[in-house]
Amino acid sequence: MRKIGIILITVMLIASLFTGCAASGNPAPAASTEAAAKWPDKKPFQIIVPFKTGGDTDFHARTYAKYLEPILGTSVVVVNVDGANGSAGSIQVRDSKADGYTALFFHDSMLMNKVVEVSDFAHEAFDVAATGIMDNSYILAVNAKSPYKTLEDLINAAKATPGKLNYASSIGGYTYYVGRQLEELTGTDFNIVDAGGGTDRNAALLAGKIDTNVNPYGIMKPYIDSGDFRVLAVFSENRSDLFPEVPTAKEQGYNLIAHRAYFLSFPKGTDPKIIDKVSAAMEQVSKMPEYATDIAKAYSVEPAYMNTADTKAYLDGAMKEFEAAKDMILK
């Protein structure tokens, strides 16, 4: 009997605690438009990164968060929800409340995940806000001890020995797709192998276990600086301002472009006013010189802002491209 009494008292105690909290902490939600106009209303804005702390996506999200805070006038909290190559975090955001306080920071892999059937949805399940960074620093590098001086040298060698040169990438990943495109474009046949993530591939290239691989410049930078690796091409429209000595693949006669957009998206049904507000803030950040210095120092990329409509168009285009190449990616 006494036991029950105690439990009752506990429950009441807790209940009173909660009503107290509710009264002070959370004001009753007003009409949605009014709430949207007030957003962010000093409430913390949570950005979900679908990868672990310490990676490139995490870095870009946190750098953005740092500069967004003073502009939005509220705390911007980055939360890492990793798993299933980014799908776990995406699902969490997709299923959260569309009140503008939760957003997802992800990149093109969201689309690739749908193509390789890791997830069954892509950007169409979200209200896309804007793109903050466009990484077009994808480069192709070889060991400096190898005889290949230009992209053409490598292609010719690959043609001479089909299926012999090792090109490293994770099957079904973005650089795998780039490698397959290169094969199609030049009519060559590489031996595509898995040699782990970006940093593992550096070691493999250094030890001569693989012949070439494609990665963002930032990942290979230490080895390029030390003279261990030779960069043959960057897969972008124009040369990068950060490493202007590297010729594009295009100017060497191979029209291949690779890029990855880091964009912010909200759960479906978020008030457009909120999305506009965030997009405008992101545009402001992308123009800040100290922001540009930060990302150049860490990952050798330049800021590139795309507004909501452009981002949507870009993602739709990319999705179409990936879908068309589905057989090639899944081979």
Binding site: I6, I7, T10, V11, I14, F18
Partner: peptide, 11 residues
């Protein structure tokens, strides 16, 4: 978390 934890700890 808070409510369920209190109940859990007691029981």
């Amino acid at each position: 978390f808070v409510f369920s934890s209190i109940l859990f700890l007691v029981l």
